[in-house]
Design a protein around this nucleic acid. Structure first.
Lengths: 203, 203
DNA sequence: TATCTCTTGACACTCAGTGCCACCAACGGC
DNA sequence: GCCGTTGGTGGCACTGAGTGTCAAGAGATA
């Protein structure tokens, strides 16, 4: 009940912010304008979002929360490239299902890729995901995440594939090809993801 | 002559900043403290550096400026993994040569990896490098950088290897193993870098 | 010496983000 | 119905980053 109200306020703030930021550009919008559009006080904004960047980045971050969970749920015998491709697909599935959600997500992706400050925060988020993914991958293969570079680099390659797909998706106009873009991106990194672990003995 | 003086002022500012930031932590130091230590005015600081983060990040960015140039200078027939390994080695060579420079670089790397704001700016820099590397790689292999995901992803994997080496180097205490760390990181991504370009026909 | 240029310092300003306090609702006990 | 507690909100003042502007000083040239 109180939780529902909090979510309502956060949504209101986020909607007003995304509307303004997408139309006027990130730097041209102040927090005062956002809260004026949402009919709330400046102080309230910063109770819900850590920064102006946070409003935009959280929209995608929430969307991508299930990646690690999906990886943990994949069968252990599955090759890394296949398991990771399925994990990355989780946030995309929501886009292919609902076109309205998809169009909004594309606007947000475009805004992030066009704004250096947002891109930086977006990558900052990815650092945490990469660590989580790396831990999960290390557990899957029984590797030591501190000495073996494979888990962290495999996680990095996965996020690299995600980034590549988002860039091509945002640049194009058809969203039907999301699956194909994902396949092609993972085809590039798959030889390294599925390589017979040449670095084990050297650790 | 005037150029020399500018460089002198920038060095003074950078030294004072790195000293304070490394000892007190990034957030605990204000620009006013830095300029007080350097004996200059606040306004002058921002004429030489775009932001507080810029002082730290530029120290590594300058060090890494030669990567793309080295890649362009490698023989065209060389496999991508070998050429890129040589390119990444350029900034490391300066560290293995001069221990004093090396120790300072390690402090800066540690500071960046420990400070989210700095890490974000560091990644923001890497975005530009990745685009430059991708363009050079596309030219090398005659690929279209807009439709083929290989150049951008190969550049991303290279920076991923760089990041992995820096993380392990900063965590350990021996700098003699820089070459070995680099070899191991590139061994992970080499299968993808040197794969027989399976995505060509699909573009 | 007059002038032109380049750099600096000083001041004022915008804006992000935070700490603090007073206010207002909902809720439970007497 | 009156009370205290709890949680969210708005207002206010503050710090600190970053920018625009202008006047002053150093150095080179005619």
């Amino acid at each position: 009940m109180a939780e529902r109200k909090r979510q309502l306020v956060a949504d209101e703030l986020r909607d007003a912010a995304l509307m303004l930021l997408a139309t006027k550009g990130f730097d041209a919008v102040t927090v005062d304008e956002i809260v004026a559009a949402a009919g709330m006080s400046r102080r309230t904004f910063f109770r819900y979002f850590a920064s102006k960047e946070d409003v935009v980045v959280r929209f995608l971050a929430d969307m991508s929360a299930g990646i690690v969970a999906e990886l943990a749920a994949r069968p252990p015998a599955e090759p890394p490239s296949v398991a990771l491709r399925h994990a990355v697909w989780v946030p995309f599935a929501a886009c292919t299902d609902r076109p309205d959600h998809s169009e909004r997500a594309r606007v947000v992706v475009r805004l992030i890729l066009d704004t250096p400050a947002l891109q930086a925060r977006w990558l900052e988020r990815q650092i945490q995901w990469r660590a989580d993914l790396a831990a999960e991958l290390a557990a899957r293969r029984g590797l030591d995440p501190d000495t073996d570079p494979y888990p962290r680099m495999a996680a990095g390659m996965t996020l690299l594939a995600l980034d590549t797909v988002l860039r091509q998706w945002q640049a194009g106009d058809d969203e039907q090809h999301l699956a194909e873009l994902t396949d092609r991106a993972f085809a590039v990194v798959a030889p390294a993801l599925d390589a017979p672990t040449p670095s084990h003995g050297a650790g």
